[in-house]
């Protein structure tokens, strides 16, 4: 195995493109090193992207935020403006692993590891985030939900990697929330998860909504029927029931050691309801 720590994006892309064997990006390493330890992967090349310009910072851009691909979870939590604008995204990212893992893990890594249960991904999808991709060609921006292709697989091409995630500007009375279910209070992989992003009008009526679910399908689900259940409502019980039913119906989970199909379908609806209430309150709505 070779370890490289390039100083420019171009050099990183060149290293990745030239590698004939297995290569992996190293930012926080909280997935890659676990996979190496367990013998799941034996990379020939590790490209540490932490020295690349701008990859460890959060910068304001067009009213939104550009989060570098090597920004750790703990750093997100310390950014007050980001937390105020996107509390659901930050809380989702902060649920990844322990305090120790938070010192290293990144949203970009969480996304590119492509686990169906990745915590930050539903929140990013609900937020309508985009990612910037560098590679052999020109940089390009894509919607975050286009990255995961299935468990452990992404749509990134040879030599490509994510350099930043962009969270857009917010209209007034907007907020998001993320909830996952785990058996313990910490340290588990999500059994089911839901992220809700809402905008309200002055009367507290939902004018825009995005609902994304995690751990209930091979990739994150953006559920339009669930969003539709909320739009136009003031989060009345009937709307929440419709939301919950839409989420349970959209979920296509599997039975595994962490949960059954029936359990996941049930719980994802419950989580969506609860997350919607939190987001609604954060956006200034009164129930």
């Amino acid at each position: 195995m070779r370890y490289e720590k390039p100083q420019t994006v171009a050099e990183a892309a060149r290293l990745l493109s030239a590698e004939k064997g297995l290569s992996r990006i190293l930012a926080g390493g909280t997935d890659v090193l676990v996979q190496m330890k367990s013998g799941l992967i034996e990379p020939d090349l590790i490209v540490d992207i932490k020295a690349l310009p701008g990859l460890r910072s959060i910068v304001a851009e067009a009213g939104g935020f550009r989060v570098g691909a090597a920004v750790a979870g703990a750093q997100l939590a310390e950014d007050r403006d980001l937390k105020k604008a996107w509390p659901g995204v930050v809380e989702a990212a902060n649920l990844i692993g322990s305090t120790q893992v938070q010192g290293r893990c990144t949203m970009a890594g969480n996304l590119c590891n492509a686990s169906p249960a990745a915590d930050s991904v539903p929140a990013l999808v609900a937020a309508g985030a985009t990612v910037r991709i560098a590679g052999p060609g020109a940089a390009r921006d894509v919607a975050v939900e286009t990255i995961p292709a299935g468990p452990g697989k992404t749509t990134l091409k040879k030599g490509e990697f994510v350099t930043s995630i962009f969270l857009p500007a917010r209209p007034a009375r907007s907020a998001d929330a993320y909830l996952r279910f785990i058996p313990r209070s910490e340290m588990d992989i999500a059994v089911a998860a839901a992220a809700v992003n809402l905008t309200l009008d002055a009367e507290g009526r939902v004018t825009a909504a995005r609902v994304a679910l995690g751990a209930v399908a091979p990739t994150v689900l953006l559920v339009e029927a669930a969003a539709a259940a909320l739009i136009g409502s003031k989060l009345e019980e009937a709307a929440l029931e419709k939301l919950s039913a839409a989420c349970s119906a959209a979920a296509k989970p599997i039975d595994d050691k962490r949960g059954s199909v029936a359990y996941r379908k049930d719980v994802v609806g419950v989580l969506a309801k609860r997350a919607a209430r939190i987001a609604y309150t954060r956006a200034g709505g009164k129930q």
């Binding site: 058996p183 313990r184 209070s185 910490e186 340290m187 588990d188 992989i189 050691k257 962490r258």
Partner: peptide
Amino acid sequence: GFLDYRVPVASD
């Protein structure tokens, strides 16, 4: 592993 063999953590 300790990820899925779930011993109680402090916050539990």
